[in-house]
Design a binder for these strands. Sequence first.
DNA 1: GTAACAATTAAACAATCGTTTAATCGTATG
DNA 2: CATACGATTAAACGATTGTTTAATTGTTAC
Lengths: 126, 126
Amino acid sequence: MADNAQDVCSEYGVSVEEDAVHLRDSLLEVAGLSELFKVLADETRTRILFLLSKRELCVCDLALILEMSLPAVSHHLRLLKVMRLVAYRREGKQVFYSLDDEHVVELISVAGKHFGEMRETGGRNG
Amino acid sequence: MADNAQDVCSEYGVSVEEDAVHLRDSLLEVAGLSELFKVLADETRTRILFLLSKRELCVCDLALILEMSLPAVSHHLRLLKVMRLVAYRREGKQVFYSLDDEHVVELISVAGKHFGEMRETGGRNG
DNA sequence: GTAACAATTAAACAATCGTTTAATCGTATG
DNA sequence: CATACGATTAAACGATTGTTTAATTGTTAC
């Protein structure tokens, strides 16, 4: 019967019908993962994490480099703290942040590799 | 002078001042990467990509498994097409989609590893 | 204690995003 | 050609998100 059939919809393909349960269950494997991608979905946060992977920086340094307002930077750092991606320590009036996660750089690296290969093969020019 | 100094701000730390240029330039390395993370930032899209990494599926199959409306699924697939992450072929009335990118599964894998280790060490309980 | 600076927080606003509903397109069938 | 079904598109709506502005907290120096 339908062994590797792939249609379902109305015409009772039944195909996936059995697999549907299995496939739906398998979604547990990726449950919640998008929360991490949400963090990197903002260009500013990707930049912050990338900078912090190079060296420890205080908030006003980041604001200077990124040419952004202090509250804006602080706002992003708050999320990074909640997600436990950065560590911070107070030194006088300043607060220094550093990267506290090993997977972030890996994710950035893979994404970079992706667009790198994209440019070689994919490009939409001739 | 300031060699590994890390303060700047107003009190003329000058520290990063030189590095600021270098650090700002280095941001080119991560320019645009968040576009890929934006795709995965939505739980539904992560699920779709994950399902397509397991087998080819038509739109109504996805709608069935994800328990979502057809337009909603189609809407997400549109973005995945634009981003060249999926391939598609028409077969009669149905359109079958499949994963057409090797990095997506890698990203999902790393994210999964992240939360996996998070649960071991990080947990917010004692 | 006051002043100055770094940082955080809160409220307000614009902009973006995802779903729904309805309409349209494409293909197969009678 | 009309009907049915799968898929896409468009408009509309609600919800979320990121930045700005202003106010507040924490620390150092006078």
